[in-house]
């Protein structure tokens, strides 16, 4: 038996996973190898030391502390949810007022034909916007500048995710309740 295998078997023996035949083989090796015998003695000593180690309990009841932190986290998440919701709602409201009010004013002074032309114009504008977007994508991927732009976009996205992570999961930590 090699010393490496003997060492592995010592660990298994401490967990009661060696068969009787294997244990006898290990014992035989231990009698002939002082180095392994010494290691076995030390492993046994460490095993006994850990077997006798006490369990420690928290110095106080942690329930109120955990519940307080849980409340703080829920409050923070609620605040973030309603804050973002309010900001988005306000943005939509402003956009709606500006856009629809303007559109209604134009619509009310136009004839049916003019209205059709306006719709046609809007459609062409939409097509143009899509073409510009496609062109922008091509530029992005075909030139060095695009790579720079992608890098900046990634950095911005990363910072945004990091900010969200800090606010949602880590913001309350470090503040002991």
């Amino acid at each position: 038996m090699r010393c490496q295998q003997a060492s592995e078997w010592m660990s298994l023996q401490l967990d009661g996973l060696l068969t009787q035949a294997q244990w006898e083989e290990l014992e035989e090796h231990l009698q002939s190898c002082p180095h392994c015998a010494k290691e076995w003695g030390m492993m046994l000593a460490a095993d006994q030391l850990l077997q006798g180690a006490e369990r420690v309990s928290p110095p106080r009841d942690l329930v109120p502390l955990v519940m307080a932190r849980m409340e703080a986290r829920a409050r923070r998440q609620r605040l973030l949810f309603w804050g973002l919701g309010f900001a988005l709602g306000a943005l939509l409201f402003v956009w709606g007022v500006v856009f629809w009010d303007g559109a209604w004013r134009v619509w009310s002074v136009l004839s049916a034909w003019d209205a059709f032309r306006v719709l046609d114009c809007l459609f062409r504008t939409g097509v143009l916007v899509v073409q510009v977007f496609v062109l922008w994508l091509r530029v992005l991927f075909e030139s060095g500048g695009g790579l720079v732009l992608i890098s900046w976009s990634c950095l911005a996205a990363f910072l945004m995710i990091l900010w969200l992570y800090i606010v949602l999961f880590r913001g309350y930590r470090g503040r002991r309740v």
């Binding site: 060492s7 592995e8 010592m10 660990s11 298994l12 401490l14 967990d15 010494k38 290691e39 030390m42 492993m43 000593a45 460490a46 095993d47 030391l49 850990l50």
Partner: peptide, 17 residues
Amino acid sequence: IKSRLHRARKMMAKLLQ
């Protein structure tokens, strides 16, 4: 797990020695 426990025990034995 078996390997980690074995290595840990070897290290502990060495430390005790």
